[in-house]
Design a protein around this nucleic acid. Structure first.
Lengths: 341, 341
DNA sequence: CGCCGTGTTGAAAGCGCTCTCATGTCACGA
DNA sequence: TCGTGACATGAGAGCGCTTTCAACACGGCG
């Protein structure tokens, strides 16, 4: 491969000349070689190798109107992205899946509403073939914005109370997973089963509450407490719970991190887990589960799989017969039984 | 702004026609309007607004050979990205700084050496104006790869034992910060000062060790223990330390997370901090520091600033007079005095 | 009054590629 | 032998933009 800088890259023209074919034929070979006879294919391939030819993406996009790139929009205030592996893991799933399709990932990090204009402009600018937005909160205007930009897009996580045309989404079966967790506690013979929920502006938290209510009809409101998905808020919720309902013998906690806090408080109060109080978490986050004592029984969700799935859904959307929007996808959960329940 | 899909976007031609000027003049206005008289500037601006014109990036790149995009290469095995806010924070700094310059961020996540080919191809493909790679380990071939791709690039963090042409980098003053930490312990009158270091394949860990040695000439090797930057490894190192050198009265721990583990062990052993053993961490990671008891004295590094700085350095590199490579940049640290030392 | 420099505008080339369409080739059947 | 259809190939248009260069207008100066 000859020495070359960004400036003097060989063009398809050069490849064609070297291979003794037309630019059109060279182009066909570079794009798969369909409809070109083998000897010519070989010649062109050889020329490509010898010259170190790499197609010019801008030129290609100009004519194909495709970009081989997808925007990933993270709308999340700083603290959550940092405290929660959830995002990194989902992003990794997306990254892997895009990579395997040879599609680039353009990261758009939205800090607040003041960024909306920029995002809208970028999407409308037609720089990407599609978009994946994840982590949306109840009142987020982002889905509307994205819809208006006309860029094919999917959401990671069920959107909130958006009206208007909705985008397809992927999500974990939060409600079903919660049901399974609570049913498990019931099957252990627990009578006073509490729920430490996540923040009410996130659909995942709401869905888990719904699952709790699916199984336990009309529970004492004191048994339902809200945390912020952090260890500390889980501890606080557990403490309050014990103060008001000392008879509690089972707790379904909306995520593992809060469950960790709950376990700590139970330990501090001298209560045995699972004998006195059985605890079930949600997520099956490796680092957290490993740190827990006793080992945490929890509802596993495949976060990386969620990321991958969002890409698959987007791809389906991009290849759809015009006007047909694919259905949203819900990923199943698995109850992982360990020592805590 | 008229209804439009990705397909029927107005072109510069349309804007020019509507404004009653040539395409060339319209282009000048769109790109700042230098050398065009005010009345025409206004007319073109109006036409742009009325038509909702957005320049076609591919067409522009094709002629300017610039892309308005930078690749950010994360080379890190899964577990660290997740356990350590360091990366998200640095990424956010980069994202913010690029956004403010209207440059897009293309994320390339490198899992292992098998991805190197793909990365090299992408960089050589000339899709981006520059690259920022961060989190490199001692034997990483990535810098070489990047250098060979001829794409202007900077590194986040001092690279390891690479030979050959090195890329400019940004890094925290790990050595200076470590010196400051150890000097502080000395100033407190501590006599047996230990160091719990990070893994030996990372330059940041090595530099902090060097800083420790700068202050303490020829310390007992037993006072130096290695961890993996995790809470647990910090605890283990502290336990070993106490077993072998029960006289230890000061510890400089290479990061806050390990310091947290060290504090836990000290507490478990009934030792008072700082009275019996003074502890200094490194990073000043908010979430960790908040969880520590007593409040952790630590060396603050501005991680987000590091990310921003890497962008600034790259910009300098891109605008350099040919052949002139800007110098690497080291960011200063600050000792934050709290209760633990 | 003519010339020249300065500043503004437009015509047109061309960035590197894809893709349509016309042309050519070849095997086969009539 | 010739026509025919299937397939392979090349010529060339054109994607939307920037940028050079020529043309032109205008004012000041000799």
């Amino acid at each position: 491969m000859p020495e070359q800088t960004a400036a003097n890259r060989p063009t398809l023209e050069a490849v064609a000349a070297r291979a003794g074919v037309s630019r059109a034929t060279a182009s066909r070979v570079v794009n798969g070689g369909a409809g070109v006879r083998q000897p010519l294919v070989d010649k062109v391939r050889a020329a490509v190798d010898e010259l170190g030819y790499v197609p010019n993406h801008a030129a290609r996009s100009l004519v194909t109107r495709r970009h081989g790139a997808v925007a990933v929009i993270i709308a999340e205030p700083e603290f959550r992205v940092f405290s929660d592996p959830f995002f990194a893991q989902q992003l990794r799933g997306i990254s892997r899946e895009l990579t395997s399709r040879d599609v680039q990932l353009v990261l758009l990090w939205v800090e607040d509403e003041s960024d909306h204009g920029r995002i809208a402009r970028y999407l409308a600018g037609g720089h990407v073939d599609g978009a994946i937005a994840f982590s949306l909160h109840g009142d987020d205007r982002l889905p509307t914005l994205i819809t208006e930009s006309k860029v094919p897009a999917v959401l990671g996580g069920r959107p909130g109370t958006e009206t208007g045309p909705t985008l397809p989404y992927v999500d974990t079966d939060n409600r079903g997973g919660a049901r399974e967790a609570v049913r498990h506690l019931v099957s252990l013979g627990r009578r006073s089963i509490a729920h430490i929920a996540g923040p009410g502006d996130q659909t995942s938290a709401l869905d888990r509450i719904a699952g709790y209510h699916d199984v336990l009809i009309d529970p004492d409101p004191e048994l339902l407490r809200e945390g912020h998905f952090t260890e500390e808020s889980g501890a606080r919720a557990m403490a309050e719970l014990l103060d008001r309902r000392p008879d509690v013998d089972g707790v379904f906690v909306a995520n593992d991190l809060m469950a960790l806090g709950a376990l700590r408080v139970l330990r501090e109060r001298g209560l045995r887990v699972p004998q006195d109080v059985a605890v079930v978490g949600f997520d099956d986050m490796e680092a957290v589960v490993r740190a827990s004592d006793p080992a945490l029984t929890t509802v596993r969700q495949d976060v990386e799989g969620l990321g991958r799935l969002s890409v698959k859904l987007l791809v389906k959307l991009l290849n759809r017969p015009a006007g047909h929007v694919p259905a949203s996808v819900i990923m199943p959960t698995t109850l992982i039984r360990r020592a805590s329940a």
